[in-house]
Amino acid sequence: MLNIIWPVFIIISFLYAILFGSIEKLNNSIFESTTNTVNLCLTLIGNICLWNGIMNIANKTTFMKKMTKFFKPIINFLFPEIDKNSKLHEEISMNIIANILGLGNAATPLGIKAMKTMQKENQDKKVLTNTMAMFIVINTASIQFIPTTVIAIRSSLGSNNPTAIVFPVWVATVSAAIAGITATKIFIKISSKGKIKKCK
């Protein structure tokens, strides 16, 4: 998609700049953009490496497994259709915890593993099951305890207090997750009603 958007952005900017005489500004901005990116990435490298290192410790100890116990009731509520003691239950909670800890790199492979386990039990291999749908929606909601990338960007731009956004992020992300979960539960109810009608 960026193969289309990217050239379009640049071409219309050039045309607009020629028409309205802002070509000098445009010229300067091209060179500024490279410096800006380098500056941003230099600070990002520091913060992302640090956080990735810390989170790797969480990943390699039983910290994550211990956390799954804590999340059991929530997972049971979200995924009523899966067995409480199954391997799938553990895979799903590991994925959600990795997301919460901001371990994007660990979360995706864990999530794909869980999807494959769910697909094995799926009767119609071309359609998402209710459990899969809920699982994906939760993953798109990105419930993250520490929004590391944003904090890194804020500190690279010289913020007085880069972590000041943490609490507002919690409120926003939890609201988004609740909205997504509620919507999914409602959609599941509506679609299951439709199926019963068809059977009659």
């Binding site: 219309i12 700049a17 309205f20 500004k25 445009l26 500024e32 953009s33």
Partner: peptide, 14 residues
């Protein structure tokens, strides 16, 4: 790098 450049042109052109 690519995107910053494109967004930069969008903004500076007005």
């Amino acid at each position: 790098i690519g995107l910053f450049m494109a967004i930069g042109t969008l903004r500076s052109s007005g």
